[in-house]
Design a protein around this nucleic acid. Structure first.
Lengths: 161, 161, 161, 161
DNA sequence: TTTT
DNA sequence: TTTT
């Protein structure tokens, strides 16, 4: 009924941009979010590694401007997908479907940047073009990301927008 | 670095209260949170089922007053634990460590209640006793909830408070 | 750069629906949000009274279904407007521009309801019609709500959507 | 009942640290938070200027490490105070009582810094010393900040912690 | 499988 | 494995 998440952390690697068969852009990345306390045994500060998914225009902006190590703010909703793995067992995947991403470090201010040309310090815009950006999402029965690289069996109808 | 989640949904079943070997109260429940859109194929409104964990004083209040079906608001942080399952494979568990829980329905206003005595419409207090309530949490290497019922191998030192 | 507010509280009175000269619906109400602690002197629990503004489709839904006393969740952004009062002094108004409102109590479950016909327990939908709902807002130089009742000098161009 | 705000913006000037007569540290600053859209007339991106208050340990950390222009994340609750001005009129002040502040730019990475010695890139810790940090707050009847500089009439009992 |  |  209400589902809102706000995170600030750093990308663990460069974002991955893909396209559904219907041509919809999807970008995934993982945010390392430091915990507010240190582990009582190791005395070390740990992090949670949280998977982020973005769709459409926002996906392309993220793919263009985010890089490993960059400090980033993400706003979105928690989504729990499930799919059947190769042993026929249900696997649950929790991820944040982002509808707002803020680049807190430009390409020349932080993070490690092995990229050739420095990218601009642009910010992700709210939503995309003419459509709502609140309802990005993916489907239930199958993990669109598990079949790495090959075209995936998703029609436009599967996407809730 | 910043990690905040706010959810409103309904309990899928009664909460489960346990105690660590050191006597720390832990309550778990699942919140069904309706998505803001309907599935484009089935035309049905789906929900995300999100696992919540609470610790200490808040755990006991939740166990006392929450019941299956009750509308509830939860505030907390996303935590990703992992443990090795019986096949030696790493399993990742995502859950919300709540530090604020609001009971939006009292025992006599909604939800289905098969419980004998009606419970009060009390609200969960902020944190507990004399300590901070922001840093509840569980440990990394082992799932404290997988070994259902039997005493579990967690010392007080594992708990970050 | 990022501006997000989530509140749960009760309406202090029935919402007020108006229309700008261009015909855009605006609904205002105030939420009483209990503080998480009691006043250290009076030992009483106090509340913050927070002004909410909604626009367009959401404004009409709120006007139709919300009533004084109802428990309500509001999601939006903080906005600080200012206008010159009749003494030529700048007055600052802080309010929440809501883009998501959840009715936590239907007409027959709580709040005081003097209304004749009971209204349904409908939920506010995300945004409106075909446009983005993220960018509701009001303008800077003049308070559209101060000139109570009479038509107000706002053209459609003033509204950022 | 639930009251949560998360902001990212830049300080409009250096923070101001004061002490109540009882010796409690209070720091105030203003955050300029860019709106997610441009003004439809001026085509310019505007900002909301939002007042932040922090108490105790967090107040001192903010005063030490924040400077004008720095990109900063703030988490807290909205509070509406009121006081009677010199004409006996009630004035309402809305501010964010922060319980978590994140320094997104260190002294050597951004913002304008006229300060002599570079300050460290420390982060505000969660809460302070031995006490809870959730319930910072200020009092209702009088504005502790209006009587600039001179000792102010607040006893410890006025402060809800 | 992880970031600074 | 799911709630209304």
């Amino acid at each position: 009924m209400l589902n809102r998440v706000i995170l600030i952390g750093r990308l663990t690697r460069d974002p991955e941009l893909r396209y559904t068969p219907a041509g919809v852009a999807v970008t995934q990345f993982t945010l390392a979010v430091d915990r507010p306390f240190t582990n009582s045994q190791s005395r070390e500060r740990e992090a949670d590694f949280i998977n982020i998914v973005t769709w459409r225009q926002l996906a392309e902006t993220c793919a263009n401007y985010l890089r490993k190590g960059r400090l980033t703010a993400v706003e979105g909703r928690i989504q729990v997908r499930n799919y059947d793995n190769n042993e026929g067992k249900k696997v649950y995947v929790t991820e944040i479907v982002a509808d707002n991403v803020r680049f807190l470090e430009s390409s020349n201010s932080g993070g490690n940047r092995e990229e050739g040309a420095g990218s601009s310090n642009a910010n992700a815009s709210y939503g995309g073009g003419g459509g709502g950006n609140r309802n990005g999402g993916s489907r239930e029965q199958q993990d669109p990301f598990i079949d790495d690289g090959k075209p995936i069996d998703i029609s436009d109808d599967d996407l809730p927008f």
